[in-house]
Design a protein around this nucleic acid. Structure first.
Lengths: 113, 113
DNA sequence: AAATATACATAAGATTCCAATGCATCCAAA
DNA sequence: TTTGGATGCATTGGAATCTTATGTATATTT
């Protein structure tokens, strides 16, 4: 199943924050690949959505960056700042709560973990 | 907890379709109240979002309408068309699947129903 | 040698939602 | 009895978010 793009809306920031919470330090392309892998190809982040989001999170002080070169190719690593760590927890828990609510609202049966 | 509005994005159409699937015939204001009630005030649909959505669904042939007057006050009832019924099931099941995926991605523990 | 993958980024446009506003009716309380 | 709150429709302007397309460049695989 491929999700209609509408569903992804509003969750991208949360996904990015969570990936960085789990992995400490990642670069953009790596995030797209990790998400693709973890979701078995169901969610494929587009670069046009991802990079602006990373920049916005950085602008908000939630991410810090460091640039590395692999050969001549640039890699821009992103990490959670202290406030980013707080924000990550906040966002994930908010989404979890929202999903609980949607489950009730839509009569959706969710398999236990 | 009040959800940051971003989360609602992408789910509004699904919510509306589901409400009409369960209730056969509803008017706009009734939908906002029902959703508010079912979610214990956590989701409050705004009119600026709801009405354009209802019109869009109607335009897509998923909803039919009938107007009634209660005294002098107009009421516009919305119902699922045959294709709307199919779409409702499709959307809800897509959202359920998406939530499963997000659960895995974000390590969220969901309580069993 | 060419195609694919890696890796960054921006721009134009569509979609979607919110906040604000407007109109009108009905009902309850002051 | 009149005033405020709830009911009920709707639109508009603007913000936010994502997609598609494009651009640049290097590395790897075929």
């Amino acid at each position: 199943m491929i999700y209609s793009s509408e569903l992804i809306k509003g969750t991208l920031k949360t996904i990015v924050l969570k990936m960085l919470e789990d992995n400490r330090k990642m670069y953009g392309y790596e995030i797209t690949q990790k998400v693709k892998e973890l979701t078995k190809d169901r969610i494929q982040l587009t670069e046009g959505a991802l990079y602006p989001t990373l920049h916005a999170l950085e602008n908000d002080g939630l991410l810090t960056t460091e640039t590395e070169y692999i050969g001549k190719r640039m890699r821009k690593y992103y990490s959670l700042s202290p406030s980013g760590k707080g924000k990550a927890k906040e966002r994930v828990s908010e989404l979890a709560d929202f999903m609980e609510t949607m489950k009730l609202l839509l009569d959706i049966q969710i398999k236990p973990a």
